[in-house]
């Protein structure tokens, strides 16, 4: 199995925790015609990290760097969940049983069902386990 096609490039942006920073990021991406497909904010004391799946990660990286943001790419995976009670449990339990740690995660529920974005400590193992279990991984080409 070609695991690479399931590895998705997420952009992570360092941001100070003060009014207007998310707007600055969103405005820059809008200007470049970059579409945000999913995002989350993690916050710590005084700063935060904005994580986003976008349709054109390279373009987003270049634009945000050029206006002074610290930006990094992070490998994540995306899994289709059953959009019903217990849907999340099935995925989470499978990874837990395989001793794969979820560092962070966020989800969205759209027209084509519910999707869970996962940052795990062992990407390749996670991709293999999930595909064997019968759950559907989403290829990176769906996003960008």
């Amino acid at each position: 199995m070609d695991v690479k096609k399931f590895v998705i490039k997420q952009i992570s942006v360092f941001s100070e925790n003060r009014p207007g920073r998310l707007a600055a990021i969103a405005h820059a991406l809008g200007e470049e015609n970059v579409n945000i497909l999913a995002f989350s904010i993690a916050e710590a004391n005084g700063f935060g990290v904005v994580r986003a799946l976008v349709d054109q990660p390279e373009k987003a990286y270049k634009k945000l760097s050029s206006i002074g943001f610290n930006v990094a790419f992070t490998d994540v995976i995306a899994v289709h969940m059953q959009d019903r009670p217990g849907g999340l449990y099935e995925i989470a339990k499978m990874l837990g049983d395989a001793n794969i740690n979820i560092e962070y995660s966020y989800a969205y529920s759209g027209k084509e069902g519910a999707v869970l974005i996962l940052r795990v400590d062992q990407v390749v193992d996670a991709i293999e386990k999930i595909s064997k279990s019968g759950a559907t991984l989403i290829e990176s080409s769906v996003f960008h």
């Binding site: 992570s12 360092f14 710590a44 700063f47 990290v49 760097s65 990094a72």
Partner: peptide
Amino acid sequence: ELTKESFSDKITDLM
């Protein structure tokens, strides 16, 4: 100021 090279996606690393 956090340098470009040391930015990590992980909040715990930054802490």
